[in-house]
Design a protein around this nucleic acid. Structure first.
Lengths: 88, 88
DNA sequence: ACATTATTTCTATATTTATGGAAATATAGA
DNA sequence: TCTATATTTCCATAAATATAGAAATAATGT
């Protein structure tokens, strides 16, 4: 992994809301959680949440899939493991 | 470890210059490196470097000790390990 | 087609963080 | 004490990031 990529991954979770979101998604497991459920659980306004989800997605730490009108987000363990490996 | 503390640690290395500094100090081992040597190696102006070193110190990721006119900085492995543990 | 619900994009604004020159401070040798 | 060198603090400025309301888009069932 390269420095810049590592910084991107780190930046994406170096933020309270995003770290909470990520950890919540880790707990949620493979099925993940719909955006609305995340926002409700963490009390984050929809547009703010969307901004953070985009950041995490862009960094590759989470992925999403559409289920009817909902968009389910789930944690990407591999990306996180890659980061941990780089830091060690 | 608590969320806010983790964010603080993450923020301190979620920055290109600081991640480079930290990694350089990990390589340097227990003896560490003087501020000037770090700045020279990484081509960072003194005042900018000082700012970043303060950030890393504040987060507890590095520590410093004075040796004559030099200030040697070294990596704090424990802090990093604590962070990694939290993220896993 | 319409109404409903979920999510995102747009936009402005606020806040935080980074940068580096100049001046100040600290340490030590002559 | 004077001088040289190392590092930090001060300061202004620039750049990046976060926030959230309002409007737009998307998906679905009726």
């Amino acid at each position: 992994m390269e420095n810049k990529l590592a910084v991107q991954l780190l930046s994406s979770i170096a933020q309270e809301a995003r770290l909470e979101i990520f950890r919540l998604l880790v707990q949620a497991g493979a099925e993940g959680l719909a955006a609305g459920a995340i926002g409700e659980k963490l009390k984050i306004p929809a547009s703010t949440l969307s901004f953070h989800l985009k950041e995490l997605s862009f960094a590759g730490l989470i992925s999403s899939r559409q289920v009817s009108r909902f968009i389910y987000y789930s944690a990407n363990y591999e990306a996180m493991n890659g980061l941990l490996a780089y830091l060690t």
